[in-house]
Design a protein around this nucleic acid. Structure first.
Length: 553
RNA sequence: GCGCCCAUAGCUCAAUUGGAUAGAGUGUUGGACUUCGAAUCCAAAGGUUGCAGGUUCGAUUCCUGCUGGGCGCACCA
């Protein structure tokens, strides 16, 4: 918001210089404006003089001096100063900040939501774990990241749909059926010499087999038929568990898209026909291949195996084609980082469908290392020694789990310290944020008890907020706009987490230094107004993260 | 062997996408509750940003080559 006004001040000076002939008429450079790291360097800063220097053959300092002389304060700046080797620093008036706070108070927090999406439709597909076993902690990370990203995009002008792709066709489901069949036979009293290693080892398979008997499901005569029945039954049961876990984790999907539905509608065959017609697919060694190499630096990949079975890649193309059919402008896929080798062929297939490959944005979720007593806990779905999302939630709670998942860039390794997440102490960062929210609420309680009319606070005189820390807090509140904007444009949900920690740090510091409820009713009122909006931003930020904002703790 | 990601304070991580003196938390040391919640705050200490070059006014960020770690390279999912 202010950034645009700063840009206008610079543009004004450039125009002036062009008119005076200090700068050639045909020279146009769009100024880059940033917020300096150090507060001493002003509220905004521009490096425009550096960009102009080689073209004007003058030193950056000299150019900065000329520009500043021709600049106006634009009604928002206290002063504009040259600094360093050619930076131009803008110092904003307290009054400007106060006016903006007034604006947020009058118009609501949504004025801090930037319109980055401009109404574009986004499909965000995440988790999409095969229904062959419960969600483990890695899926939990993907669930948290996807959910939070959806919240962010929802606030920044996108239409978002959350979707879970259910791989309910294929070999793995069959393996689950086989596993269930064997466990079922065990329960029938049959001796199984050795339970094969390639089958699912988890305890949940036994539970499902038991449920089968409990529900009186009719089992066919032959093994082949039985496995088919059990594949469907078992994967449905597992899926129910997954949905329940996700809901408990606070993640709700708009749509569960079944892979089998693509086959039911003949969508996979249609897609393959399309590719063949375009000559993007060819037959070799009795298999059907996709010409990945035509679009990307990658090898050609098999769509239909020589035994006639279709690969996952084939249905994946059909699935993404379907997404475009449904009118989405941007497709976001969250994958485990071990699938990164899959990106080129997927991008290639998008191009083959005649779409822009940049319409597909793949976010890779790096693995989570779970630490217990400072030592890593191993996990693998097959072996059954995984740690489930449910277990982690039960142990550390939903708030801590979600917060921890969002403290890292999603493509960076995450060390999840169970002991730390479990601590209800100051070492746990999630409490740091929640505590601020509760603390502000507590101030409101006391103010109310002292007979302060909280309704009248809305009309407080914001110009009474003149303490350095108060101006800093206002800046922090207004920064929400830029953080949301950057977070949405870069698809980086973790920025919200860092922002909240920083914002809340400013508050705690202010709280310890300055009393809010003082004798002067005007000042008290103004401070309560500031905290009211601050609390609203904290609450909204926590809501984005899917973390609760308690009034007491 | 080829490709992708990572390497920053003792530990876990940031650094506004190329900006100014590289910042937090944690741990260590010392301090602050008769007043709105001490799950908090203040201060000190902690660095050749893995190594070596290159690009330029300026590099943790971009390029090249090493070293070390993770992950991929199926007619698997």
């Amino acid at each position: 918001m202010l950034r645009k006004k700063i840009a206008a001040i610079i543009e004004g000076a450039l125009d002036q210089c062009r008119a005076e002939g200090t700068i050639p008429h045909d020279l146009h450079i769009s100024p880059f404006i940033e917020i300096p790291r150090e507060e001493g360097n002003g509220d905004y800063s521009s490096n425009i003089a550096f960009s102009l220097a080689p073209k004007l053959r003058k030193s950056p300092q000299e150019i900065a001096g000329i520009l500043i002389r021709t600049m106006t304060l634009g009604g928002i700046c206290e002063k504009i100063e040259p600094a360093g080797k050619g930076f131009i620093n803008f110092y904003i008036k307290d009054r400007t900040w106060q006016d903006d706070l007034r604006l947020v108070c009058d118009q609501g927090i949504s004025v801090l939501y930037p319109d980055a999406g401009m109404g574009k439709k986004v499909l965000i597909e995440f988790v999409s774990s095969n229904p062959t076993g419960p969600l483990h902690i890695g899926h939990g990370r993907g669930a948290a990241v996807g959910d939070v990203l959806a919240h962010i995009l929802n606030r920044t002008g996108y239409h978002v749909v959350r979707e879970y792709y259910v791989n309910d066709a294929g070999r793995q489901i069959e393996t689950l059926g086989e596993s269930t069949y064997l466990r079922w036979k065990e329960l029938q009293g049959e001796k199984i010499d050795e339970y094969p290693k390639h089958l699912y080892q988890g305890e949940y398979v036994r539970d499902i087999a038991a449920l089968l008997a409990e529900k009186g499901i009719k089992i066919p005569e032959t093994e082949g038929e039985s496995v088919k029945v059990m594949s469907v039954f078992a994967s449905d049961e597992v899926m129910k568990g997954i949905v329940a876990d996700l809901e408990a984790f606070g993640v709700h999907f708009d749509n569960y898209f079944r892979e089998t539905s693509l086959f039911d509608r003949n969508a996979v065959n249609e897609t393959l026909e399309f590719l063949k017609k375009k000559d993007y697919a060819y037959e070799k060694d009795e298999a059907l291949w996709f010409r990945t190499s035509l679009f990307e630096k990658d090898e050609d990949r098999v769509l239909v195996k020589s035994d006639g079975e279709k690969t996952y890649f084939a249905s994946d193309i059909a699935y993404h084609r379907d997404k475009f059919y449904r009118g989405f402008d941007i497709l976001i896929d969250l994958w485990g980082s071990d699938h990164h080798g899959y990106i080129p062929r997927m991008k290639a297939s998008i191009e083959a469908l005649g779409k822009d490959k940049d319409a597909l944005k793949v976010l890779l979720i790096q693995f989570v290392t779970l630490l217990k007593d400072g030592k890593p806990v191993g996990m693998s779905t097959r072996s059954g020694e995984f740690t489930t999302l449910r277990e982690v939630m039960d142990e550390v709670g939903r708030d801590a789990a979600r917060f921890f998942f969002l403290m890292r860039k999603c493509d960076a390794h995450l060390e999840f310290d169970l002991d730390l997440a479990k601590k209800t102490s100051n070492e746990n960062p999630v409490y740091y944020v929640q505590y601020a929210h509760a603390r502000i609420e507590s101030i409101f309680r006391v103010a109310g008890e002292n007979g302060f009319d909280m309704e009248s606070v809305k009309n407080a005189d914001v110009s009474l907020l003149s303490v350095k820390e108060e101006i800093s807090l206002i800046k922090g509140i207004l920064q929400f706009y830029a953080v949301l904007d950057g977070s949405a444009r870069s698809f980086e949900p973790h920025r919200i987490t860092f922002y909240l920690l920083e914002l809340v740090g400013k508050f705690h510091s202010y709280y310890n230094k300055t009393r809010v409820l003082v004798d002067d009713a005007g000042i008290t009122s103004a401070r309560l107004l500031l905290l009211r909006i601050l609390q609203e931003v904290i609450r909204d930020g926590l809501q984005i993260l899917g973390v609760s904002a308690p009034d007491k703790m």
